[in-house]
Simulated scan of single mutants.
Amino acid sequence: MKKIIVTGSNGLLGQSLLALLLEEKDKYEVVGFSRGKNRSGREDFRYVSMDLTNKNVLLRELNKENPDVIINTAAMTQVDQCEDKKEECDTLNVDLVKNLIKYSEEHKAHIIHLSTDFIFDGKKGCYKETDEPNPISYYGLSKLKAERELVNSSIDYTILRTILVFGKVYDMSRSNIVLWVKESLEKGKSINVVNDQYRMPTYVTTLAEACKAAIDKGKYGIYNVSSTELLTVYDIALQIAEKFNLNKELISPISSKELNQKAQRPEKTGFDLSKTKKDLGIELRKFKEDLQNFKQIIT
């Protein structure tokens, strides 16, 4: 039996991982580390409430638990906020990872860490794991710094890079692209959506499966995880409207320049997924298919 700690277990991916891993209680003992009360709606695992950025508390609790694997889902992901609060961003996105590495170097734990397409500048698109990063936002830079800490360490690590994660769990503190579009249109609200940024959204269930596959197959290194088709964010919104039978006329295309966000976004990301398909062996689908699976769960 493997003991697995999920940091950020209250988040979208954190709660999805709990649901997946706790299906096999004979294989995994799962412990959640997160801030505040346990928001997963489950009581069949150990939950430790803590400030993950407090190094002493984190190391003390890790030493108590002695995990085989740490899945680090905790991060500051609001891109514009990271631009404004660089120190806070680094504390959670970089320093936490350094502290997890410190523990793992002494105790031989496997770290699975989540990263992002925003480490790239978006000039090329369909990035391979080996392509040269060049972040254009502070968020992207912070995630790249964390990756480099892992790559330069002596531990067993798996970095899963992902894009626009969507899904729904028991108690959510934040929305995501699919819920935002769906809920806005259900209320009859008009929305502006960029038509000059290209992405491959990721269903949170797929991402959780990738984490589990990395554990079960003992796969280390860097992997890309997303859906399989490159779409503009505007096209993504149209597909959401279509799938949930909502009014597409409420969606207006807008350029990134017009949106005028604080942090720059990469124009075209998307991933080459061949290494992930080969090594992790999980099923990766078109966004439309992932949306259909998601719809079946929430309706």
Rank of each mutant, 00 (worst) to 15 (best):
I5T: 00
I5D: 00
T7K: 01
G8Y: 08
S9L: 05
S9N: 05
N10D: 00
N10Q: 04
N10V: 03
G11E: 01
G11R: 02
L13K: 06
L13E: 04
L13S: 08
G14Q: 05
G14Y: 05
Q15S: 06
S16M: 12
S16K: 14
L17R: 03
L17D: 04
L17M: 04
L18K: 07
L18S: 12
A19I: 11
A19V: 09
L20R: 13
L20A: 15
L20F: 08
L22W: 09
L22S: 14
E23P: 05
E23I: 01
E23D: 12
E23T: 08
E23V: 04
E24N: 14
K25P: 10
K25Y: 07
D26T: 14
Y28K: 12
Y28H: 11
E29R: 13
V30L: 03
V31L: 01
V31A: 00
V31N: 00
G32F: 06
F33G: 02
F33M: 06
F33E: 04
R35P: 01
R35F: 13
R35M: 09
G36M: 13
G36E: 11
K37Q: 15
K37W: 10
K37I: 15
S40Y: 04
S40G: 09
G41H: 09
R42L: 14
E43V: 04
E43P: 02
E43A: 08
D44W: 13
D44T: 08
D44Y: 10
F45T: 02
R46N: 07
R46P: 02
R46G: 03
R46C: 03
R46I: 09
S49P: 13
S49L: 08
D51K: 12
L52M: 12
N54Q: 07
N54S: 06
N54P: 01
N54H: 07
K55Q: 15
K55W: 07
N56K: 14
V57C: 04
L58R: 08
L58E: 05
L59W: 06
R60K: 14
L62C: 05
L62W: 03
N63C: 03
E65F: 01
P67D: 00
P67L: 00
